[in-house]
Design a protein around this nucleic acid. Structure first.
Length: 205
DNA sequence: CGCAGGATGGGCT
DNA sequence: GCCCATCCTGCGG
């Protein structure tokens, strides 16, 4: 049992590929898992992603290879976790891709809840299950993702991503401009946001 | 339903 | 000192 679970964890080679747009699309339907304090699983299927492609991308924290204490983990090897704090209240969870010192990251913007839904309800304090994980800040609250997970490895035991039976066919992958980056000039228009067509948990429809 | 405004604090120009 | 890769509430129609 343990062994078959391990086999479903995405391997390093999934993340270290160079084409981040392929990875951002392929992450749709994969299962993001964070164990709770009692060891039970809290998880959801990824249904919305965005690619941030530094050094060219003016929307990226690592634009022009800007390198600070805050964004340092985005320079780690593919498969690392980049978590940052935003708007004084929220965290955002990103998957680092490519090789060391290439700061490509995929922001996970929405999940469809799967395991540990009762724990998510307690953490989110919302009456409506549609609000549990339908946004980048919401899903971090629901899964308990905060700065403690920054620069963790998705091949470790604190947080990881698994293969799943939630299959997303090519015709169900939609793309469009990214959210909340109007300042990024010509990069604001790039169609680097991906989502599962008609999925209820996508943050904006 | 849509939209405006407030919450709230760390990072960076 | 200003700017956020956001969320929630309350108000108007």
């Amino acid at each position: 049992m343990q062994e078959s679970k391990e086999k479903r964890k995405l391997p390093r080679e999934f993340y270290t590929r160079h084409d981040i747009l392929v990875i951002a699309r392929e992450l749709l339907g994969k299962l993001l898992v964070v164990p709770a304090a009692d060891g039970s699983r809290v998880s959801g299927f990824i249904v919305e992603t965005e690619a941030y492609i530094a050094p060219e991308d003016k929307a990226s924290h690592a634009y022009n290879f800007r390198r600070t204490q805050r964004n340092e983990s985005s320079y780690s090897i593919g498969g690392a976790v980049y978590v940052f704090f935003i708007y004084g209240m929220y965290f955002q969870f990103n998957v680092v891709t490519n090789v060391i010192d290439v700061p490509h990251v995929v922001l996970i913007r929405a999940l469809e809840p799967f395991e540990g839904v009762e724990i998510m309800r307690e953490r989110r304090k919302t009456a409506n299950d549609k609000n549990l994980t339908s946004g980048p800040g919401k899903l971090c609250i629901a899964l308990g993702i905060d700065r403690n997970l920054n620069n963790e490895d998705l091949l470790g035991e604190k947080i990881w991503i698994e293969e799943s039976d939630f299959k997303v066919s090519g015709k169900n992958v939609m793309s469009g401009k990214r959210i909340g980056i109007d300042y990024a000039e010509e990069f604001a228009e790039k169609p680097w946001r991906f989502w599962v067509k008609d999925n209820l948990f996508v943050s904006r429809r």
